[in-house]
């Protein structure tokens, strides 16, 4: 899974690992909300480079668990990945995550109908709070079971489709992505502001 040994918890007798030691954006916990999105992509370019002709448009509206209203708007795609290839900014018909080397291994290895990487603007209750945020979206087979637990690669369900929309705690700067908490305005029970957004839209239709 790629988690360093010191960041893993074990059973009492130390015979098996249980979970990561700290919180991640990939747990089994989720709050029901409502929302909508429209995504349009043109995947023209396979290889990363500044001349990529890939295009994407995304607007996602959703409520937060506390009732705040959020809008994520894609400004542009990023045509070259700093850590792994971005397929020119938009990829279609690819396998990601798991052991592929594309994306975090905390997600199961999964087929993606479409994926994109870009720069997004985030608005909370009608006010733009950030306009240089890293965003990654992908429409994949269903990676969560009936209890909404994130499954392993061998249990991904191809009968369902989901849009994963994640704004990690990273901002895009002239020097590349830099760590930076996302100003979500959503305060967790421990008093800390949630530093990322990971929104899952179910029952996605595509044409």
């Amino acid at each position: 899974m790629g988690v360093p040994l010191e960041m893993r918890l074990t059973t009492e007798d130390g015979s098996a690992y249980t979970t990561t030691a700290g919180p991640t954006p990939f747990p089994d916990k989720a709050a029901p909300i409502s929302g909508n999105f429209v995504l349009g992509v043109v995947d023209s370019t396979l290889i990363d480079g500044p001349g990529s002709q890939d295009e994407a448009e995304l607007t996602a509206n959703f409520s937060g668990p506390d009732g705040k209203q959020y809008v994520v708007k894609l400004i542009k795609v990023i045509p070259k990945g700093p850590v792994h290839p971005f397929s020119g900014g938009v990829a279609t018909n690819i396998i990601q995550h798991g052991g592929t080397g594309i994306g975090t291994r905390m997600m199961p290895q999964v087929y993606a109908y479409v994926a994109f990487w870009g720069v997004a603007e985030l608005s909370v209750d009608g006010e733009v709070v950030a306009s240089n945020r890293l965003v990654h979206g992908m429409i994949t087979d269903d990676v969560r079971n009936e209890n909404y637990e994130l499954v392993w690669s061998d249990a991904v369900d191809p009968s369902g489709t989901q849009l994963h929309l994640i704004l990690p705690p990273m901002e895009v700067t002239p020097n590349g992505p830099q760590p930076s908490p996302l100003p979500t305005g959503f305060i967790l029970p421990n008093g800390v502001e949630q530093p990322f957004l990971h929104i899952m839209f179910e029952d996605v239709s595509m044409e």
Binding site: M1, T20, G22, P23, A31, Q194, F201
Partner: peptide, 14 residues
């Protein structure tokens, strides 16, 4: 049918 993912530990591959 939309979910807000809350921060939490990721289960490891037992």
């Amino acid at each position: 049918d939309v979910r807000w993912i809350l921060p939490g530990p990721r289960a490891l591959d037992q």
